[in-house]
Design a protein around this nucleic acid. Sequence first.
DNA 1: CGTCTATTTGAATGTACTCAAAAGCGGTGG
DNA 2: CCACCGCTTTTGAGTACATTCAAATAGACG
Lengths: 191, 191
Amino acid sequence: MHPLLRQHIDRYITLSEQEQDHCSTFFQPLVIKKKHYLLQEGAINKGLTFVTDGILRSYAIDKNGFEHIIQFAPPGWWIGDMGSFTRQEPAKLFIDALEESKLLWLERSDLEHLYKDIPQLERLFRILAENSIITYQNRLISNLSMPAIERYENFCRQYPSLIQCLPQKQVASYIGVTPQFLSKMLSEQRK
Amino acid sequence: MHPLLRQHIDRYITLSEQEQDHCSTFFQPLVIKKKHYLLQEGAINKGLTFVTDGILRSYAIDKNGFEHIIQFAPPGWWIGDMGSFTRQEPAKLFIDALEESKLLWLERSDLEHLYKDIPQLERLFRILAENSIITYQNRLISNLSMPAIERYENFCRQYPSLIQCLPQKQVASYIGVTPQFLSKMLSEQRK
DNA sequence: CGTCTATTTGAATGTACTCAAAAGCGGTGG
DNA sequence: CCACCGCTTTTGAGTACATTCAAATAGACG
């Protein structure tokens, strides 16, 4: 099992060597090049992705053609379209790589089997889902209650390592402003 | 076990009579009057709440004193401050009743025991958490990509029964505009 | 070096907010 | 049963935050 995945799992549950080995047989290593898609809107998201290297993003495109980034996934994070994955419906999101990335891919059907073999995994994914809820909730509160500049400062505080590797445009999309406006805010701030 | 709770659980997992009975011993019935708090910012959220009658809401108050509604909980819904509940940290949210309501209260420690007695419950709460993620994600996309009037129309489509019993002010807070602006939008729309 | 994309800057515009005040509505007590 | 109080909703005028459109500049990559 990939050390990053192992470390990730160990943070929440305890698996025996056997269980770990059993688990790891279902994760398929995958490499995805910069700008290549892992998922496109309308497709069915048939598996979950654990990032080991690089960085992915998920985003929606609105009817005016603008991208709205939902999530960045650096190493150690999961990414997927939860709606499409759990209900096997057409995805609302695109997922692509911002740079060449290495992934571990877990098929939905394999995960369902794993839940039966290792009930602890239900617990793991319950906790991961709860953490995700907390993150979404905080972001929602930010969006509802803060002006753009504070949302930006928030982002920098929360993801200091991401700020360094992301183009400004991507950050603008995440915090919910146009790239032009983010640029103007930053030039104001520098004064 | 309360029929609404039973029906709710049955939608996702299958419990034996015994398991159901065991479960239900931990749910404490509770009545909360209009405008009374179930949780206040800064307190620790020590349990989860399943609503059987009435309606609750959770909301954050920003530094300017404005409320931002995170969730409404009509009968059949859970409500709580996930961050405070799972990490036993001070809550960021207030939860109160919009009208006199009846609840079933489940203590965190009891839930932890229940997870051990009935591992299926890990599954139940995993699925509930995943559904919650999907809801938050859709709302985030709405907030990022739609003007206020469309967010309102969205809300009406998604929660037709809520629209009828909620004062306009509460809906405004949920979709993220001032009550004045919602009023202006609606009077425009009527023309 | 040339092309493509990201960033910056400026002017005009628009969506939504603030402040203020009037009107409507529901509940309560005399 | 009506009058009053408090809260919600409406309306208007002025303002601010953020967008759009446009164009120039800067950076990255083959």
